[in-house]
Design a protein around this nucleic acid. Structure first.
Lengths: 211, 211
DNA sequence: CCCACAACTTGCGTGTCGCGCACAAGTTGC
DNA sequence: GCAACTTGTGCGCGACACGCAAGTTGTGGG
């Protein structure tokens, strides 16, 4: 999945894709959550240095372009889990994989806030997260030795993990939250694997409490 | 939430909303997953007995209209959990509430298959499910006595439950699955609350195994 | 019983957008 | 070096979301 592992064509394709996505996100942030309609396709294409028609070859809606980086990231989550050592327990492996993937660069607060506060963009982000569930479920099934076609555990866990990442993101960009995204992510994911519903594990020890 | 608890205006509004949604879903099913573009707004409006402009007052996209019933159902999930007896353990309460809400009429296989096999519609369905997470998280927080602003557990669990419902639906309409939707739902939800990652709880006893 | 007010529906006009088609430019494999 | 393929681009059509200004129907006060 390294950039230099592809031929020239694929690299150019990926470059323009990222250029369009980056331009789209930047323009969306400039206009703010309520001015999404003011971001015209023509502006995005111009800012990315391509024609509107080319933009349309890559994305079929503004929302898709703006959330492109999330979609790209989601595609890597399955591979990230597979690259963990085989003996590692599921919880630790998932935790490490997700944290590595989502905190290598600390996420862009403005971009995330823009997406989470705009219904149309949030829908596209949900699609991006759901794209990760399939591969993630396969990786989980492989690690736990379960058949994803007979046992619902891998798919459900994958969906729960994706949901936890989403919740962590939403919580992280609430005003007053000072914890790192990695810490928030850890808290959220621990809720998935430890069922503790009504224990006093909260507050200062277990999950939550970084507002 | 009963129909006769509203004044005439609200009832008419809800009626036309359901009429449009029903017509949209029916037409979408007729055209199949690949012919969604052939379903014109004009057709939906005509089938529902309203003008295209009125359709547009209720929904701002075909996908939204087609998935309207899912959105309406999602809005009820929080209330469904609240209406469970207070002493009931969280897992049982969630299980009972969800099963009651999603199996009162057994879901429409054709409609569900249509939605799950069409990317654009699946995105809208994801939005509908995510709408349920907020109220559901509040209900869970209230039941477990946790503060949803400090503790991530309610939100994460809500997201996991929503994800489990989704996974159950996807699994249920796979060819060869003969179990009732209620049973599939039970299996999926049990994966959320029992962490059992690598136990041999599968196959004939625990979760899964109804293919 | 009637009337004023509010909500809902509808027709029309406008600005965008998605996308199919045909062609030019660049890249890869032989 | 040549041929096949992929990708970027210009053009144009059909559809659609949405604002605006009527007309129509439900609601409540005198």
């Amino acid at each position: 999945m390294n950039d230099d592992a592809m031929d020239l064509r694929a690299r150019n394709k990926q470059a323009t894709r990222e250029a369009i996505g980056h331009a789209a996100l930047r323009l969306a942030i400039e206009q703010g959550p309520n001015g999404l309609a003011l971001v015209r396709v023509h502006d995005i294409a111009t800012a990315a240095g391509v024609s509107p028609r080319t933009y349309n070859n890559y994305f079929s809606s503004r929302e898709e372009a703006i959330c492109a980086f999330q979609a790209d990231q989601s595609r890597r989550v399955g591979q990230a889990l597979r690259s963990r050592p085989a003996g590692e327990p599921l919880e630790e492996a998932v935790l490490a994989a997700v944290i590595e993937l989502y905190t290598d660069p600390e996420p862009d607060r403005a971009g995330l806030a823009m997406i989470m506060s705009t219904p149309a963009l949030e829908g596209e982000a949900l699609k991006a997260f759901s794209m990760a569930e399939g591969p993630l479920a396969e990786a989980i099934a492989e690690r736990t030795g379960t058949d994803p076609r007979r046992d619902l555990f891998p798919s459900v866990t994958a969906a729960a993990v994706a949901g936890a990442i989403r919740v962590a993101g939403r919580h992280w960009l609430q005003p007053g939250v000072t914890a790192s995204f990695a810490a928030t992510l850890r808290n959220a994911l621990s809720c998935v694997f430890t069922p503790a519903p009504l224990a006093d594990s909260g507050k200062d020890a277990g999950n939550g409490g970084d507002s």
